[in-house]
Design a protein around this nucleic acid. Structure first.
Lengths: 222, 222
DNA sequence: ACTCGATTCAAACATTCATTTGAATCGGGC
DNA sequence: GCCCGATTCAAATGAATGTTTGAATCGAGT
């Protein structure tokens, strides 16, 4: 079974790596732990992927494509409509997609959400570069969609608020398992995720539509 | 110089560790790199601190105390006033303190800000436990201050919004060096930090005061 | 001038890691 | 039924890590 087996072990490794990277971090996770969880030999990683770095890249690229695809699909639909999309619709297309991904019944998808959120704040130049490279064009399209939907707000202001929204969403997702104890919040996991989206949406839109800070005339129009 | 020298090398190590932990992450940073930067012998770490873990704890505790002190001082002042503190004042006392810390001219303080923000999302149980243990009582006091300042908002809602604000602030601080390239934002570092606080404040208050999500009657009053 | 505890230092130790190696094993194509 | 490329495996390799060791060095107290 030369071909079936290859796919089998490759995906066994990818699944195990996804889970262990999410739990322990990418540099902290050892190939021995990953291959043990996958039930394959250590050398299989280098045979199928070439190196640990290549494995990390493969794990990330496998799922980021899904996120990108869904986000672009929703944005295309919004922009194809008669009326120009409203900010709340863009926010839902971008952040709602991620939260729904995190709320998925698929434990692999849930693990990946934690992984991707962590990597954005990671110190490793290598992993952040992968994420940036994969997300760049989607972020660009959404940023421009926000610009068009909020023409009265200076672009620098919109960019910052986009970034703030990313942070709030990141903590919302990481929080249910990492920050929760810090707050004493103890809602059941799945229920917390179900309630999360409307709560997060209210907050994001409130922040996005907040009055501009005083005396913030940009002095350097781009 | 038995006593002077001890303080000297201890603090040389702490300063170097702070910088390298912030740059590379705590598990990723090696004692050899730290002691090389500090200009001391490798064994000095174990002699003065006992272990790498103890060094990490020492680095964190040294500065978290400052943050806690300032945050409690400001909150005490607010609560000692005639009128009860308004949400915007509490937000400024908590998040403004952090941003001002990050905008400090002291490069050590700036490095520490990045370090602490990273650790909150770290996979390592060990470091997160230290941060949680150090911050717990301050978070608790601020959370209750928000409860009192916003009696009409359900407590669970306030807690979540507090957490969203933490995330937005975290990305605001990490962002100027990590996420910036991802957006193509290229403002000079210091100027970006000066403009950051008013921008962040508008966003946080907008989110905090946003209308409640529909159909969010809590069904389980605590 | 000397002694003694505190501190520094170079070297070694034990462990863990990613990666490589070369033989063993598998299974479809002739 | 046999062969050969693809795949798996146990074992070894070499580099990097935190920690320990024991001798060398320092400097205040007498």
């Amino acid at each position: 079974m030369s071909e079936r087996a290859t796919l089998q072990t490759s995906e066994l490794i990818l699944d195990a790596a996804e889970a262990i990277f999410a739990a322990d971090g990418d540099t902290n996770a050892s190939l021995r732990a990953i291959t043990a969880k996958a039930g394959v030999n250590i050398a299989a990683v280098n045979y199928h992927f070439g190196s640990k770095d290549a494995l990390i890249r493969a794990v990330l690229e496998r799922r980021m494509g899904m996120l990108n695809q869904e986000r672009l699909r929703l944005l295309d639909a919004l922009e194809a409509a008669d009326e120009p999309p409203r900010p709340s619709q863009i926010v839902d297309a971008y952040f709602g997609t991620l939260v729904r991904f995190a709320s998925s019944r698929d434990p692999h998808a849930r693990a990946f959400t934690v992984l991707i959120e962590r990597i954005v704040t990671d110190p490793s130049e290598f992993t952040r570069a992968i994420v940036a490279e994969q997300f760049a064009h989607v972020l660009e399209r959404y940023r421009e969609a926000f610009y068009r939907a909020m023409p009265q707000v200076p672009r620098a202001e919109v960019t910052w608020r986009f970034q703030f929204m990313l942070g709030a969403t990141s903590y919302a997702l990481l929080g249910t398992r990492h920050l929760g104890p810090l707050f004493g919040v103890e809602e059941p996991q799945q229920r917390a995720l179900d309630l999360l989206l409307p709560r997060l949406m209210s907050f994001l839109l409130g922040g996005l539509r907040a009055p501009l800070p005083e005396s913030d005339q940009q002095d350097r129009p781009t």
